[in-house]
Design a protein around this nucleic acid. Structure first.
Lengths: 131, 131
DNA sequence: TTGGAAAAACGAAAGATTTAGTATTTAGTG
DNA sequence: CACTAAATACTAAATCTTTCGTTTTTCCAA
């Protein structure tokens, strides 16, 4: 079973599942299914299909333990965050991260705490750079 | 022709077209088509279909001038940037914009100038909030 | 005023995504 | 060893996306 063209990004549902898997570290189909949002009511087979697709696409791997497969993420959340940000920056911000942050900061629904937190982060970063 | 469920986000190709439309302000199918990347070789009818879909989904509007439609974006690029960032922040950064910025700053090793630029932006923003 | 070129309208085909049903396999128990 | 419960494998249907061909409309010039 050859894996397709190695998808770069997760679809909506795939991300939903990966997020749960990142949370629990590793787990079976049932483990992941149990972690989905309360309202979410997916058949077991649907969940299994999603996990199989994630494996086909190379985002997770599995090892058989007893009769069940235990899944583990191959891509860390950090790495996927980076990949997604890079993509967004390219596609929507002319590859200029500063303008991305500018837009984020200009948005009205950012709390003052959040703004301060970001500024402290930058201060630390600037300090380290000069060390 | 009822417009579907009001899509929130642009697909890959839709974003490609919207980006061109944002660049030129407004234009016909041919205007947008002409702006696409050099290698991109789409049939006129394909481009027309994309523009029609964009209108159906409520992202653009059109007015007839002579025999052709002139399209105009209904959603500004700024607004779409905000929407996209909000979505990414929710889905991948636990709704914590600071962690998004942290990831960005850690990845890109931004120049000191860029970092300073962002910090000044924050300072201005924080100052305005307290006014 | 009519013929032709350009554009719009329509819709179909191919592929991806999302969901789930049915069939098959497997591990353990009586 | 045979049966059963649970898991996996396979398949399919519905919808969305991307692309483009065919048909219809529209404007203008000869």
């Amino acid at each position: 079973m050859r894996q397709k063209k190695k998808a770069e990004f997760l679809t909506e549902v795939e991300l939903e599942f990966m997020t749960r898997l990142w949370e629990i570290g590793e787990g079976t189909v049932r483990d992941v299914l149990a972690k989905l949002a309360p309202g979410r009511d997916l058949a077991y087979t649907s969940a299994a299909t999603i996990m199989r697709i994630l494996e086909q696409k190379g985002f997770v791997t599995s090892t058989k333990q007893g009769k069940t497969f235990v899944y583990r993420a191959l891509l860390t959340k950090d790495a996927y965050q980076s990949r997604s940000l890079k993509d967004l920056s390219e596609k929507l911000f002319d590859n200029t991260p500063a303008s991305l942050v500018a837009r984020l900061v200009d948005d009205n629904d950012l709390s003052k705490d959040a703004l301060n937190e970001i500024r402290e982060l930058l201060d630390r970063r600037l300090k380290n750079d000069t060390d």
